[in-house]
């Protein structure tokens, strides 16, 4: 644990991410104003004591919207990462442990999924089921599957050549047990790092999907949706665009810094400060 926080970029990234997450969680129980409260009479207010970040074109409180939007972004990206890991990692491990035709099929499947960017999947789902946050989750989740499958397979392949995996096979372990006991625990750090990176990509994708109207729908809000609402007013009221835009940038940077820090902290090659490696 001390090792984790001795890494400054990890500490900064983690703390910043946790602050945003806390703000998002807080929005579930309390926001300064209800986000769906429309009051045209108080629209386009600047920063005031009452409205910390002003109000938008419908008189909604910007601070409340940003809080709620942050939560939507985190939720969508996190569930999408869970979907990607839940399907992708078993696929990747299966490919590495069984090999041969199974591996070929998994690779072709992931090539197939890679061919559809999140936007295309979202358009497809929207055409079938209508727009909404849950559809954005599914679209980004599907996009995450091949990413995790590739990372899991790559990591597992390099572990699979080590002698302890052969020892496990000698002990009569089947492919599934090899994957569970020997491969998965040793690629965990890789997956955690990739998960952080996919989180930040997911937040960007969610913003993008909401911006083109395929993600979160009003009265719920997300940072991408706020951008979309504000874009027509950008020249007159740039503040309305800047607030959600900067919020997205800050969250993504925080997650990326945390991801880089995690990689440095978890990478066993960088971890052991063992001078004997040379001799």
């Amino acid at each position: 644990m001390r090792r984790l926080f001795s890494n400054p970029s990890l500490a900064i990234g983690m703390i910043a991410t946790l602050i945003f997450l806390a703000i998002g969680v807080l929005s579930l129980v309390w926001t300064p104003f209800p986000i769906e409260q429309i009051d045209i009479s108080r629209r386009f207010l600047g920063i005031t004591a009452e409205h910390w970040l002003g109000t938008d074109n419908l008189g909604r409180d910007m601070a409340s919207l940003v809080m709620s939007g942050t939560w939507t972004s985190f939720l969508v990206a996190a569930i999408a990462v869970v979907i990607g890991m839940g399907v992708g990692v078993p696929l990747g491990l299966t490919a590495a442990a069984w090999g041969g035709p199974v591996e070929w099929q998994v690779l072709r499947l992931s090539d197939f999924l890679f061919a559809f960017p999140a936007v295309i999947v979202a358009i497809l789902i929207t055409a079938l089921a209508g727009p909404g946050a849950s559809n954005a989750i599914i679209a980004i989740g599907i996009f995450n599957i091949p990413v995790f499958a590739r990372v899991a397979r790559g990591g597992a392949l390099s572990i699979a050549t080590l002698d302890f995996v052969a020892a496990g096979r000698l002990a009569g372990l089947g492919n599934a047990m090899i994957a569970w006991r020997h491969l998965l625990p040793n690629i965990m750090s890789l997956l955690i790092v990739q998960g952080t990176i996919q989180m930040s990509l997911g937040i960007l994708s969610e913003a993008g999907l909401s911006y083109i109207g395929l993600g979160t729908q009003p009265p719920a809000t997300s940072l991408g949706l706020m951008l979309k609402d504000a874009q027509g007013l950008f020249l007159i009221h740039p503040w309305l665009t800047l607030v959600p835009g900067l919020a997205i940038v800050a969250i993504v940077i925080a997650l990326n810094i945390a991801g880089d820090g995690l990689r440095d902290a978890l990478d066993p090659r960088l971890r052991q400060g063992n001078p004997n490696v040379l001799a």
Partner: peptide, 11 residues
């Protein structure tokens, strides 16, 4: 079987 490399033979 006893493996050659004692560093890779344990998880």
């Amino acid at each position: 079987l006893v493996f050659q490399d004692p560093f890779g033979s344990f998880n």
